[in-house]
């Protein structure tokens, strides 16, 4: 566990830079974490992905299948990588305050 300071706020993060406690997440925090992904500005499309991820996680306790994320947001995977260069798992999930997806992924 480490402390990451973003935009003047201290956040407890794990070694991968993901929020330790997803329950504290809000949109301001998302904007702070966007800095770590070199995304100083989050567009409406970014927020569509972020909110879908956050809501899915809140309901089901895990990140959604990537294919479902694409279907529900209407964005194909290529576009999601354009929005989040680190990808849906390592980039978007981090900003949305989810734990880092793990396993054979």
């Amino acid at each position: 566990m480490a402390i990451l300071t973003l935009r003047g706020h201290d956040f407890e993060v794990d070694e991968d830079g993901f929020l330790e406690d997803p329950s504290i997440w809000n949109e301001e925090i998302a904007a702070c974490f966007a800095d770590t992904e070199d995304l100083p500005e989050l567009t409406e499309d970014h927020w569509k992905v972020i909110n879908y991820l956050h809501n899915y996680y809140a309901q089901f306790g895990i990140a959604p299948m990537i294919r479902k994320l694409c279907k529900e947001t209407g964005f194909d995977l290529k576009y999601i990588y354009k929005l989040f260069p680190s990808g849906p798992a390592k980039g978007a999930c981090k900003i949305a305050g989810l734990p880092k997806p793990t396993g054979c992924v």
Binding site: F60, G61, I62, P64, R67, P101, G103
Partner: peptide, 17 residues
């Protein structure tokens, strides 16, 4: 499972597929 997918999420994914 290794990803930590809870049962409800599994069923949701199954339904989706």
């Amino acid at each position: 499972n290794n990803m930590g997918i809870p049962v409800l999420a599994l069923k949701d994914s199954v339904e989706f597929l």
